[in-house]
Amino acid sequence: MSVSIVVPTLGRSTLRALLDALGSLPPEVELLVVEDEGRHGPAAARNRGWRSASGDWVVFLDDDVVPAADWYRRLLHDLDVADDVGAVQGRIRVPRPHGRRPTDWERATIGLEDGAWLTADIAYRRKALDEVGGFDERFPRAFREDAELAYRVRRAGWRLVRGGRTVTHPVRPESRWVSLRTQRGNADDALLRRLYGPRWRRLLQIPPGRRGRHALITAAAAGALAAAALPGRRRWLSAVALLGWAAGTAEFAAARIAPGPRDPAEVATMAVTSILIPPLAVGHWLAGAWRWRAA
Results as ranks from 00 to 15, higher is better:
3 V>C: 13
81 V>N: 03
288 G>I: 10
90 G>T: 05
281 A>C: 03
102 P>N: 13
98 H>S: 12
177 W>H: 06
118 L>K: 14
126 R>S: 09
22 L>Q: 03
76 L>T: 08
257 I>D: 05
288 G>T: 13
278 P>V: 04
202 R>C: 10
107 R>F: 10
288 G>C: 05
293 R>P: 09
30 E>I: 08
198 P>D: 11
227 A>N: 15
209 G>K: 02
96 R>V: 07
168 T>E: 14
286 L>G: 04
243 L>D: 03
285 W>L: 04
61 L>N: 14
164 G>D: 11
206 I>R: 12
79 L>V: 06
276 L>R: 09
295 A>I: 12
55 G>M: 13
75 L>V: 14
275 I>F: 01
161 V>Q: 01
226 A>Y: 15
133 G>A: 04
110 I>Q: 14
267 V>E: 07
251 E>Q: 02
99 G>D: 11
240 V>D: 05
278 P>A: 05
127 K>M: 13
221 A>I: 01
50 W>N: 13
61 L>S: 15
151 Y>Q: 00
33 V>F: 15
195 L>Y: 01
176 R>C: 05
111 G>P: 07
131 E>F: 02
7 V>L: 13
152 R>M: 06
238 S>C: 09
63 D>Q: 13
6 V>M: 13
109 T>W: 14
179 S>C: 04
154 R>N: 03
11 G>C: 12
65 V>F: 06
102 P>E: 12
270 M>K: 04
195 L>Q: 02
160 L>N: 03
4 S>L: 04
115 G>Q: 12
207 P>L: 07
146 D>C: 10
271 A>E: 04
85 V>N: 00
57 W>M: 02
237 L>P: 14
182 T>V: 11
92 I>G: 13
90 G>Y: 15
85 V>D: 00
164 G>R: 12
241 A>M: 15
214 H>V: 03
286 L>F: 07
127 K>R: 15
87 A>W: 08
44 A>I: 01
19 L>W: 08
90 G>L: 15
64 D>K: 15
185 G>W: 09
291 R>S: 08
31 L>S: 07
93 R>M: 14
3 V>P: 05
181 R>E: 09
213 R>L: 00
134 G>Y: 09
148 E>M: 08
129 L>R: 00
208 P>C: 06
167 V>W: 12
261 P>F: 00
268 A>V: 08
283 G>R: 04
30 E>G: 13
257 I>G: 08
152 R>D: 07
53 A>C: 07
191 L>M: 09
98 H>I: 12
110 I>L: 15
289 A>H: 10
270 M>Y: 03
236 W>H: 11
287 A>P: 05
154 R>Q: 07
176 R>S: 11
118 L>C: 05
276 L>V: 04
29 V>A: 05
189 D>I: 06
95 P>C: 10
8 P>C: 08
146 D>V: 05
221 A>D: 07
196 Y>Q: 12
32 L>Y: 14
283 G>L: 01
123 A>W: 09
155 R>W: 08
2 S>M: 03
247 A>P: 04
97 P>F: 08
78 D>C: 06
163 G>H: 14
287 A>G: 12
288 G>F: 09
200 W>R: 09
203 L>H: 04
35 E>L: 10
217 I>Y: 03
52 S>L: 10
104 D>G: 11
32 L>T: 13
157 G>A: 03
154 R>Y: 02
277 I>F: 10
179 S>L: 06
92 I>A: 11
